[in-house]
Each structure stands twice: as structure tokens, then as C-alpha cells.
């Protein structure tokens, strides 16, 4: 399907949607388009409005203002829902029904569900069909939620924090499954607060903060915006001098070494070596994603203030 003219088709959208709960504005005039065949990651810190955006697209929340559309219909339209699947955050499955019974029930909601074995295989639940849901481990329940989301053979899949609470190995498995679903031509919207996850999976990342879109683009573009490095070294230059260099966002000194945070480490280093050829004990490391995030949201705040 890639390369197909279909890839430009918008299949779901939020059109200048606001959602207020009392005096709290969870989503603020947010516009979002989901295109056929893409994996779109909604990236942002907790409380940014990612889940509310998904809930608006799913019809779980009604917009205070603006319009949400799913396949050109209202999200609460049953016909639109037959074409989607959703894995919701914090849904606690339980009960004495067996895995295959629950799958059969949920598959039955759809016109053309996936064969049971395929759902089980994609979700990594093979061999657990006969286990009562209540006896599944936390990770297995998470995989069952995933299975329930995909069992209807959805064209568009919503995954709200799909890897929350998964160990590293399960997360890898989930990522592989998500990529395979995309290869089958499905569109996927996932929310995450890990840049790493968005980077690994998404074709397009939309960064949401305080209910607004503050950046969007390919993972490479987003990473460039937020790419920051720590430069640590012993140098004769003062912190004030270094702070003046273009691309430097912060400088800390522990008395012996300088710790420089920079968006363009190559340029900064070049300048520093020019000014101080005796610079030594050099170490360049990637900034933590949280710091990158903060930088992005700080930029945004400054941009808004300006």
C-alpha cells in the first residue's frame, strides 16, 4: 500500500477540537489528521492531552468545541467503529471467561474479524486460549487487550500507551507486532511519552503539550528539534564564554569540568577547540529524552510568550 494515492487520504481527524472539563482545558483547539497507512505517534508528557485526544477520536469524550471525525462519520457511529480497534489505557480485564471466549465475543462485534489463531499469534497469546482471564499475569492481560483491539481486523488501530507496564522483551514483541500490522496496510495511532518508542515506530510524530500541538514531523525532524547533547570537558574557557556560543542551551561547572548542553554539539566543539586547543578530558553524551522534551516545551513557552 505504500506509494498508493491512498496514503494521502485522511481517515480520521480532529478539527480545531477543544475539550474542557469544568475549568480545566484538556485539549485546546487541536487539529490532527490521521492518514491511511501511517503510524502516527502522539508524543507528550503525562497530562498533555494525548489520551483525551484519542478519547475524542473514539467518541469516548464529546468535544466541547470543534469536530471529531472517523472515516468521515461521527466517532460514535457504529459503522465507523466497525473499522477501528482500540487498546485503552487502564482497562482492567478480569472475570472467569477464558481467553478464547472473550476473543470470540469481541470478534463477534465485527463484520470480518481476523481468524482466532492469527489474533492469538499476533498478540503472542498462543497456548493461553483456555486460561481464565482472571488467571493471566499483568503482561498477558495487556496482550489480551491488544488482541481485543486487533481481533476485528481494523483499518485503524488506536493504542493508548500500549507498552505501559511491559518489560523490555514484551515491549520489543509489541513493537514487532505493530510494525507487522502496518505492513498489512493498517493505520495506527499510538500515544506514548517515550520519544524512543515514537521514533522506533512512527512515520509521523505529533508532539502535544498542554492540549496543543507544539511540533509535528517525521521522527528525524522531531529528533533534530529536540536533539541535545551533553559535552563534558576540562577547559580554560569560562562558563560565561561558552554560554555565548551559538547552539549552547546551558552550562554548568563543577569547578573542574564544564557540563555543556548543546543542540549542535559539532559546531560548539569546533568553536571551543578553536578558542582553547588545550581542551581535554572530552566526553559527549546524548541528553536524556526528558531533557529534550523540556527543551521543546520550553521553546514553545518562549515562542508563545514572544
Amino acid at each position: 500500500m505504500p506509494g498508493n494515492a491512498d496514503t494521502l487520504t485522511t481517515i480520521a481527524a480532529l478539527k480545531s477540537v477543544s475539550k474542557r472539563y469544568g475549568s480545566v482545558t484538556a485539549v485546546d483547539r487541536l487539529t490532527l489528521e490521521i492518514r491511511r497507512g501511517e503510524i502516527l505517534a502522539l508524543l507528550g508528557p503525562n497530562g498533555a492531552g494525548k489520551t483525551t485526544s484519542v478519547n475524542l477520536l473514539l467518541g469516548l469524550a464529546g468535544p466541547t468545541d470543534g469536530k471529531a471525525e472517523l472515516f468521515g462519520r461521527a466517532p460514535r457511529d457504529v459503522a465507523a467503529r466497525r473499522r477501528i480497534g482500540a487498546m485503552l489505557q487502564g482497562a482492567q480485564l478480569g472475570g472467569h471467561a477464558r481467553v478464547h471466549e472473550m476473543l470470540a465475543l469481541y470478534s463477534g462485534y465485527y463484520l470480518d474479524p481476523l481468524p482466532r489463531m492469527e489474533t492469538l499469534r499476533i498478540a503472542g497469546l498462543e497456548g493461553l486460549e483456555n486460561r481464565p482471564v482472571v488467571k493471566l499475569s499483568g503482561g498477558q492481560k495487556q496482550r489480551l487487550l491488544f488482541a481485543l483491539a486487533i481481533c476485528g481486523n481494523p483499518e485503524l488501530l488506536f493504542l493508548d500507551e500500549p507498552s505501559a507496564g511491559l518489560d523490555v522483551e514484551s515491549r520489543r514483541g509489541l513493537w514487532a507486532a505493530i510494525r507487522r500490522l502496518k505492513e498489512q496496510g493498517r493505520s495506527i495511532v499510538l500515544t506514548t511519552h517515550y520519544l524512543e518508542e515514537a521514533d522506533a515506530l512512527a512515520d509521523r510524530i505529533v508532539v502535544i503539550h498542554c492540549g496543543r500541538v507544539i511540533a509535528q514531523g517525521t521522527p528525524a525532524e522531531i529528533k533534530n528539534t529536540v536533539a541535545q547533547r551533553h559535552i563534558r570537558c576540562v577547559t580554560g574557557l569560562s562558563a560565561v564564554q561558552v554560554k555565548m556560543l551559538p547552539g549552547v542551551t546551558a552550562v554548568n561547572s563543577d569547578g573542574e569540568r564544564l557540563d555543556i548542553v548543546a543542540t549542535r554539539p559539532e559546531h560548539v566543539l569546533f568553536e571551543m577547540l578553536r578558542l582553547d586547543p588545550a581542551l581535554q578530558d572530552l566526553e559527549v553524551t546524548g541528553a536524556k529524552l526528558e531533557e529534550a522534551f523540556l527543551a521543546l516545551t520550553d521553546d514553545n513557552r518562549e515562542a508563545q510568550a514572544a
Binding site: G59, V78, R81, I84, L88, A91, Q92, L93, Y106, L148
Partner: peptide, 11 residues
């Protein structure tokens, strides 16, 4: 337990 929400996003 969020099951009601799950029942509402399925068709």
C-alpha cells in the same frame, strides 16, 4: 475497571 469504555469503542 474501564470495561465500560472498552464496550463503548467496539461496534
Amino acid at each position: 475497571r474501564g470495561i465500560l469504555a472498552l464496550k463503548r469503542v467496539v461496534p
